[in-house]
Design a protein around this nucleic acid. Structure first.
Lengths: 156, 156
DNA sequence: GTATCCCTACTCGGATAATTCTTGTCCGAGTAGAGGAGG
DNA sequence: CCTCCTCTACTCGGACAAGAATTATCCGAGTAGGGATAC
């Protein structure tokens, strides 16, 4: 079980985009240089976030990305599932039906599958309780100020 | 994020082994035929469970596997982590330190990493609350009886 | 009939390929802004 | 001086390779049980 490293990139990245002043679009070039990440691969994950409705993109010079909704209304789960998908990591293949003498279709859902689903929901619940705004506010003040100054310089 | 299908195989498989009478060792051949699974690949996962101390193996004719502890003392988490490892699916690479002007080592842990860890712990907590005994007892009675009869036949 | 020995067959364990998914990269379509020319 | 046009440069989006992890397989080391043999 392994999460794509794009999850970390985008959780940080969305936090950065959230700090951009109104009217400023953060391009993937700026994002890549800010975190020293491969720009080409970053594009793939940003595209996923646009598809999921978390970010909005605009082309052309001074184009880039901004949040589709207020930072307080975007949860970490939205970001994670935009990249990883919302499917449970456990894919039940109903191997219990392959036991000789077992019915082809059980009445009750598989207990193991139910347990794994509960665990998955618990995991999602934790991520749903944290918003992008929370992530931004948890960064140390000095760092946040420096970032704000750098983003403001883009609006010139 | 995807779990190995071996997780499903082994959660069911350990449940089957748990139903074996004392002195009966369930071989991987029996297990593979019971669930119609590829025997060779099954071996890999069974080996992981032995390494993790969940199962005990013995070679030779009428050899096989049995539980290393009472079924009530083995949790689903033990089985899952025996196969998938206990590491968090989120591997924080501290990209926050790559931001220009950021300190090389922060005092506080990364907020995003902490959040992902909390989610992982919530996931583990759910799986820790279910024991192998629970899994066995959740199976329908008729199925359980038929399985018990099949396992008893191995002791002849 | 009983004990001993040998041999067969079955078990698990580790080392070795094939396949799928993640990772990584590139180039093309489209657009906004700047600069120059004309009025 | 203002307006319009053109052109450039920058943006995102989709299609295309490389690497890693999972999936799948095989064969060898070792052991317990059964059968034959000797007593």
């Amino acid at each position: 079980m392994k999460l794509s490293q794009g999850v970390e990139w985008m959780l940080h990245g969305v936090g950065l985009i959230a700090q951009a002043p109104d009217g400023v679009w953060v391009s993937r070039r700026v994002l890549a240089e800010h975190y020293r990440l491969p720009e080409a691969y970053l594009a793939k994950h940003l595209k996923s976030l646009v598809r999921a409705g978390v970010l909005v993109a605009t082309p052309g010079p001074s184009g880039g990305f901004r949040l589709a909704r207020p930072a307080a209304e975007i949860t970490a789960l939205d970001v994670v599932e935009a990249i990883e998908g919302s499917a449970s990591p456990f894919a039940c293949q109903e191997i219990r039906t392959r036991v000789p003498g077992a019915p082809a279709a059980y009445r009750r859902p598989c207990a193991i599958s139910s347990m794994m689903d509960r665990a998955h929901q618990a995991w999602r619940s934790e991520l749903r309780q944290v918003t992008v705004l929370d992530i931004v506010q948890m960064a140390p003040g000095p760092i946040r100020e420096r970032t704000a100054a750098r983003l403001a310089a883009l609006a010139k």
